[in-house]
Amino acid sequence: MHDITRLIGGVKRYQNVFVQREFKSKRNTVACVVLEGKLRVLKWFAPAFKNGLLNEYQVLKQGSSSLNMPHPYEVDMENSVLILGFIDGENLCDLINNEDVSFGEKQRLMVLLADWFAGFHRFFRGNEGFRIHGDSVLRNFLFSDRIWGVDFEDSRRGKPVEDVAGVCASILSSDPMFTTEKFLLCKTFVESYVRLVDWKVEDVGEETAYKLLEKIQWRPEHEKVLKTYAEVIREQGLPVGLL
């Protein structure tokens, strides 16, 4: 990732930007900034992920007026920068893994997340099929008085079940991993989503197993447990934690 001071010090457009805080990101430099007196999110794309900039901008430009996602204020292709509206919310991953948040509240959040995905898939459904988020991990969602989706650089054409499975894999593999509560939250999420849509949602277990195996490249220290649960879920389906 870039050091954001290089952008601020080296590009005239951003010399009056004041950085409030930086966010965790595996790929790009992302920060909450004050730009022309307004609170914004500045996303500076690494060269290897520059194609994701235009992809994310196009998704947000099309969907932000109808769906809960940040408004794209500026796109700077020359410097690989995207300026977005700031959303004041709590990260969904932190909420789901917070032992001080009641199980009932976590279930409510899963219902709201299912509603967000149903709306997203419905809005972007076309003659060529569905557009999916493409990186449907809990950390890409915020909660204020509603659920907000962020980080659409990997959005593409695909099957909605890929997003559904991505959420389930994220729930199960975040700490604490593979608890009974986590499997119950997956159950709530999947059942809520299925009730909301008019298309088939098949092979959730198979897709979730695949998503868990994908995580090994980022988390090699958890390879054994991820492989074990991926195999069990592939064979028995998602409710294995309740057996």
Rank of each mutant, 00 (worst) to 15 (best):
P47L: 00
P47G: 06
G52H: 05
L53Y: 05
L54T: 07
N55S: 09
E56M: 10
Y57D: 00
Q58C: 10
V59T: 05
L60H: 00
S65M: 11
L67P: 04
L67A: 04
N68L: 03
N68H: 12
N68A: 12
N68P: 05
P70D: 02
Y73L: 14
E74S: 05
E74W: 12
D76K: 06
M77T: 14
I83H: 06
D88C: 14
C93Q: 11
C93M: 14
N98V: 10
N98C: 12
D100K: 13
D100G: 13
F103E: 10
K106V: 01
Q107M: 12
M110R: 04
V111S: 05
L113V: 10
F117Y: 14
G119E: 08
F120E: 03
F120W: 07
R122Q: 10
F124Y: 13
N127E: 14
R131H: 14
G134N: 04
D135E: 13
S136N: 09
L142M: 12
S144M: 13
D151C: 08
D151R: 07
D151K: 06
E153K: 02
E153G: 04
D154G: 00
K159R: 13
K159D: 15
K159F: 12
D163P: 04
V164R: 00
V164P: 02
C168K: 01
C168V: 03
L172C: 08
L172N: 01
D175M: 01
D175T: 10
D175K: 00
T180S: 15
F189S: 04
V190D: 00
